[in-house]
Design a protein around this nucleic acid. Sequence first.
DNA 1: AATTCATATGAATCACTCCTCATATGATTA
DNA 2: TAATCATATGAGGAGTGATTCATATGAATT
Lengths: 108, 108
Amino acid sequence: MNSKFKIDQQHLLEVQDIFKMLSNINRLKILYLLDNESKTVNELVELLGLEQSAVSHQLRILRDFQLVSVKQVGKTKEYRVDDPHIFDIINEAVEHSDHVMRGANHGE
Amino acid sequence: MNSKFKIDQQHLLEVQDIFKMLSNINRLKILYLLDNESKTVNELVELLGLEQSAVSHQLRILRDFQLVSVKQVGKTKEYRVDDPHIFDIINEAVEHSDHVMRGANHGE
DNA sequence: AATTCATATGAATCACTCCTCATATGATTA
DNA sequence: TAATCATATGAGGAGTGATTCATATGAATT
């Protein structure tokens, strides 16, 4: 039998969706930019060099996953990361990336 | 400034690729099936209910990421997970999934 | 309330992913 | 070495994702 606990189809689909959501560099950048610091949509647009529309579309996805929260401030909206736990996953991937890079250097 | 260490474009692209690779339920299933236990391609085909070709295509991706290793055994090839560290990422996503589900129940 | 500033959304387009089909490669056995 | 079993690969097509363009909504200011 496998060492890891069995995981059902339902769980796997959720995990797949989380990874899909994280598999876009602009969403990753947005998460980093909004970590512990709120920013408006236009600020993100400037920082990322993307169309305002593109940023809004990505923010909608992050909102759907309840990763960011919004606060209306005057005419603008301030976004920030609402669920810092998401960085636990991202950081594991960063570590894996480092880990693999090290391995590649050794191997060749 | 942000609480998390800055991460450059290069790293972010690698992280994006890792998440892309993980954002497919069949690859996730294959990883679970090959964890601590080697299986042939045909065994995977049977267990997953996919075409042999589809399984081979996914195995190629997992090989490219050096997540699985292959050993020729007679006519068959035995695959197994080569880098169990990948489960650190997957397990974080599983936990996140649970975490979000709990949140949803509380909230509504 | 009309205008302006800020953000959101829908539709269209382009790119990419995954699967299937057909076929190739590669190892074993007759 | 011919045939067979096991796996790999390339091309093609359906579905999905990301971006852009145009426009809508919504709050604040005049």
